[in-house]
Design a protein around this nucleic acid. Structure first.
Length: 304
DNA sequence: ATCCAGGATGTAT
DNA sequence: ATACATCATGGA
């Protein structure tokens, strides 16, 4: 086992692992003790797997992290320093980003969301698992989306032992093509089962991968990634924001639509694309996704 | 029971 | 382009 720590407390605004990993951005982490959505304990470890390479079925790597005295501590099956920095976007200067957003829009909701959830960061998930996660997200609650991804991993992913425990990698595209629609429905994917199966086949048979859109102009990438079955504007934005490095993406889900009605009615337009442009501008442009993610998490947790 | 959850698809207009 | 029904599932 390799270990390390990455200082984050005063650097780039620190991190709240629970807010970051259980706020409906990523569905690929779990808590070592207890359910991901149970009340958090300060010293909890959060674990996930990392594909070793593009090749299918190679033994995946395992990493776990916790927040300790001003640092992210990690333990892993490999030297995970760069992977942890990348997966948690530890190089984002979050205070600078949030302050920059507030300079453009002096807004009580944003201010409250930023203050209430200090340490919330945007994640950087691997693209295919992120794509499947958000295809499954349609009309589903956060906890159940997470449950579905864990079920997919246990059923179809490669299992690997680390530090005496068994972990399950997210299935590769090929592994998912070998799942039948009925098997996917047995995992409670419902009508999303054929979307997942068809998307996996697109990756394998048509040689198109969500990573292919990395670097394409934002709106072109959002349109382009909708070639995958089950991906519309909103899911496309989630994949761009939480996996492909597009911090300007502002997924317009039901919570954000309500927020527009109640807080930003001047941003409402007749199409997703136009509303997205207006809200993106209101949320400070290039890093608008940070504002979106804070508002989403804030509104969704108001009753707690 | 009825409504809703990080919506998308197929079809008709 | 836009409007509508339809698609599973479980919790409130």
């Amino acid at each position: 086992m390799e270990t390390g720590e990455i200082p984050v407390e005063s650097l780039n605004g620190g991190i709240d692992l629970h807010s970051t990993l259980a706020s409906g951005q990523s569905f690929l982490w779990q808590r070592e003790a207890g359910g991901l959505f149970d009340a958090p304990n300060d010293a909890d470890w959060y674990s996930t797997t990392i594909p070793r390479s593009e090749a299918d079925r190679e033994r995946p790597e395992v990493v776990r992290v916790r927040h300790r005295s001003g640092a992210v501590e990690w333990e892993a099956s490999f030297d995970a320093h760069e992977a942890v920095k990348s997966r948690l976007r530890l190089e984002d200067d979050v205070p600078e980003i949030l302050q920059s957003i507030l300079e453009e829009t002096e807004d009580a909701l944003l201010q409250t969301a930023f203050d209430t959830h200090s340490g919330l960061r945007i994640v950087n998930d691997p693209a295919f698992p992120c794509l499947i996660s958000f295809i499954c997200s349609a009309q589903m609650r956060v906890a159940r989306i997470h449950q579905m991804q864990q079920a997919l991993s246990k059923q179809f992913g490669t299992s690997v032992e680390f530090d005496g425990r068994e972990y399950h990698a997210f299935p590769t595209p090929t592994q998912l093509t070998e799942a039948s629609e009925d098997e996917l429905r047995d995992l409670k994917l419902g009508y999303r089962a054929p979307y997942v199966k068809r998307t996996a086949h697109q990756v394998v048979d048509e040689d198109v991968h969500p990573d292919d859109f990395r670097g394409v102009a934002y709106e072109d990438a959002r349109d382009g990634i909708q070639v995958f079955t089950g991906v519309g504007d909103k899911v496309a934005d989630c994949v761009l924001l939480y996996s492909l490095d597009y911090l300007e993406a502002v997924p317009l889900d039901t919570w954000i639509q309500t927020a527009i009605e109640e807080h930003y009615p001047e941003c409402a337009r007749s199409s997703y694309s136009e509303t997205s442009r207006a809200l993106r501008a209101a949320f400070g442009g290039d890093t608008a996704g940070y504002a979106q993610t804070y508002v989403f998490h804030h509104l969704r947790t108001l009753d707690e």
